[in-house]
Design a protein around this nucleic acid. Sequence first.
DNA 1: ATGTAGTTGCATAATTTGCTGCATATATCC
DNA 2: GGATATATGCAGCAAATTATGCAACTACAT
Lengths: 277, 277
Amino acid sequence: MIQRLIQERLGDLPPGQAEVARFIAQNPQEAAFLTAAQIGLRVGVSESTVIRLAMALGYPGFPEMKAALAGQVKDQLSTLERLHRYDESSVEPSLLRRALREDMSNLSGALLSVDEEALEALASAIVQAKETYILGLRSAHSLAYYLWFYLSWFLPHVQLLERETIWERITQGTSETLFVGVSFPRYTRLTVEALEAARAKGLSTAAITDSSVSPLAAYAQIVLAIPSKPISFIDSFSAPMSVLNALILCVVEKCKDHAEERLEELEHIWRERKIYL
Amino acid sequence: MIQRLIQERLGDLPPGQAEVARFIAQNPQEAAFLTAAQIGLRVGVSESTVIRLAMALGYPGFPEMKAALAGQVKDQLSTLERLHRYDESSVEPSLLRRALREDMSNLSGALLSVDEEALEALASAIVQAKETYILGLRSAHSLAYYLWFYLSWFLPHVQLLERETIWERITQGTSETLFVGVSFPRYTRLTVEALEAARAKGLSTAAITDSSVSPLAAYAQIVLAIPSKPISFIDSFSAPMSVLNALILCVVEKCKDHAEERLEELEHIWRERKIYL
DNA sequence: ATGTAGTTGCATAATTTGCTGCATATATCC
DNA sequence: GGATATATGCAGCAAATTATGCAACTACAT
């Protein structure tokens, strides 16, 4: 595998060659069809540098490196074909393949069954609420956190609830407060109870869960149902993750003008505080 | 599509060229990487005949036909055919559909390019380490948390690092300590710096990131690269999520006997403490 | 049989692609 | 700040790949 080779030696490579190496590692399928000169053009270095990289990586010349890339791409093509053909019942698929395939089927399931109106409604509710609380516990905390993280870029009134603050927040809420519960099978009891309490106290409620008949749904005015078959004892969050992206983008869409300048502001402070590389 | 072109004209083609045409139509993925002479050799025909076929099919020359083949092959690789086909039918895809499709393509990309050896190696390293620290900040915190949450069911030595405890833990580590950094573009600076420091202090290091040439990879002994195209300003974690599932299952596989009784224990305490509904 | 049209392979020409020496630029070390 | 080492691009050269002219061959018709 050429990427491994590149990864190992990237540090010792001169800057120009390192650029080329990065391009090849990130776009092997593209690079496999290009000549040395064309790669050089893409990266912005001379043809010579590309050829010298091939040699620096230990190949006798550029054509040999290209052949190695071609071999890899051909391999990928054959596995792709196998995947496409009759569900290979004979071969034992690896753990990785099983997980990814399972999630692809979860995503296509979501494509068919997720209710776009509910998504829209939830996005609107989030934007319009005076306060929005997001609660997800145990594994669902990852989803709740993710949702909160991006929403809080644009909406300062969105808060992530922790175990410690659940009841204080709920008792402070009004009908203009939106409580979003996130939980998937096997539903965390506390999340359901919190949602129930929120509803009882007259807060607006929403649920992000696996079905419209989940225990959360009983106490939620808006239900975003994302079916998801578990793999082994884990119930995958791949599909929910994807739907959350749609939700975030939908929210951003609803405060577009505000969001754009907000992104610029953020960009500015990220640079200033050197948050990202 | 070149196969169609060949099919149409196969009847009018002289026998030698027809042979070549059949070969190309049946093995486009092979042919896309071969020179005219090599194709001639395979089919048992001279180089000239191959070139003449290209012209007979209406291309200005052989390179152009090869480029057409290459383009086709690249298309197959970039996304699953199915996704493409559905895409064409629906006119204006909604946000949700776009997000889900993008992620399906990310998953199929992962299916082709994720290095199973790296996955195995990382799982082994996690199980064997004396201490395992997982660090993911900002959006990647959701992934780090998720990974930690499940691993800690079986492996008490797995810890989730918070901003506050990074440096203390790193300075306490030995070569038997595994430091797992999780970061995706745009890479959080602190995560990269922590991984760098961990490596410098002699800890074992691993990275879960988007490519083998990501900034994290430079300081990681094991790199789990999960390519992922971003949607809008968000880079989706749907594919990484799925690969994490595979990683978790792989770890569980490696301590199978222990894991089973552990699950029973957990089941017991969950019931006792009424964690789930 | 003999001629004609069309196809093919070989040899060679033309073009493209890959490689290398040298001068310039850049970084590093003292 | 100067000297050494290294990296890069350019230009020219070598090698490969592609294109074509020509003669030989085949098939078919007269």
